[in-house]
Amino acid sequence: MKMTQGINVPIGPAIVEYGEGADQVIFDITKGGIVFSATTTKQDTTVDQHGDTVVKSIVKGSTAQATVPFALHDLKRLAAVMPGSKLIEDITTGKKKLKVYSGAGYDMLKNAKPLVIKPTDPDATPDDWITIPLAGAIADPNYTYNSDNERVTNVTFVAYPDLSQEGLLYVMGDDFVESTGS
C-alpha cells in the first residue's frame, strides 16, 4: 500500500518577545497577524554600449522590520514600545496612566533591544524563529470605538545592524546555533 504524503506548510499566529531578562515584554495577543519583512536595495549599472540593459548590480543595503498588531490595552506593555512615554502607576489603587510626549529627536537605536518572533504552532521549533538583535520600537494606536472593531496598537520594530556582530540585521532560525565546521 502506497502512503500518501503532504507538504507541511506552516501557518498560524506567533508571539513576540522584546528585550531580555526582567525588562522583557511579551506581545502574545494580536489581531491581524505579525508581519516580518526584509528588503534589499540595489544599484543597477548600465553602459552606453548596451543601452538600458543592466550589466551589473550592486547591493546598496538591507532593511528589516516586524509589525505587531497588539490587541490588548495593557499600559505597561505599551509603555515599553512608545518612545517618549512615561507610565504612572498608583500602587495603592492599581490605577495607571500612560503619558505620551512628542518624541522629536528620540534616538531609537539607543534604546534598541533584541526581538524574537516565535510561532505558536505546537510543531514549531527554534528553527522557525526570527531574531532581530537590535530592534527599535514605535507604537501607533488605532482605536475605533464601536461594536465592530478591536482596538489595536500597531507596534513596528525596526531592525538596526548590530556592529558587534559584523552588521548582523536579523537571524532566521535558532540564534544559538554556532558553526561546528564547514
Rank of each mutant, 00 (worst) to 15 (best):
A139V: 07
K60L: 15
L163M: 09
I138C: 00
S182C: 03
T30V: 15
K86Q: 15
V47L: 06
T53N: 09
V35F: 01
P122G: 11
K76N: 13
A66E: 00
V16F: 02
G32A: 13
I15Y: 03
P13Y: 05
V55G: 04
G19I: 04
T46W: 01
I29M: 10
P83F: 09
E17Q: 08
S62T: 07
Y170I: 12
R77Y: 05
V152W: 00
V55P: 02
A71K: 07
G105H: 04
E166N: 14
V25C: 07
G61V: 06
L78G: 05
A79P: 10
F36V: 08
V16P: 00
D175S: 14
S182I: 11
G21V: 03
T39F: 00
V25P: 01
L168V: 06
A64N: 06
E17T: 09
V47Y: 04
P13L: 05
T30G: 06
T131G: 09
G84M: 07
I58M: 06
V158A: 09
A135Q: 02
V116T: 15
N8E: 13
K60H: 01
P83A: 13
E166M: 05
M1F: 08
S85K: 04
T144C: 04
Q5A: 12
G32H: 10
Q65D: 13
K97E: 10
G32R: 07
T67H: 00
K56G: 06
N146D: 15
E150I: 06
V9H: 06
A64V: 05
L98G: 11
V59S: 04
Q49S: 13
V25A: 15
K31Q: 13
G167F: 05
N111P: 01
L168D: 01
G6D: 15
T39G: 07
L169I: 15
D52H: 04
K96I: 00
T153Q: 05
V171I: 15
D123I: 05
F36K: 02
L109E: 13
Y101V: 07
E166H: 08
G94A: 04
G21R: 02
M82E: 08
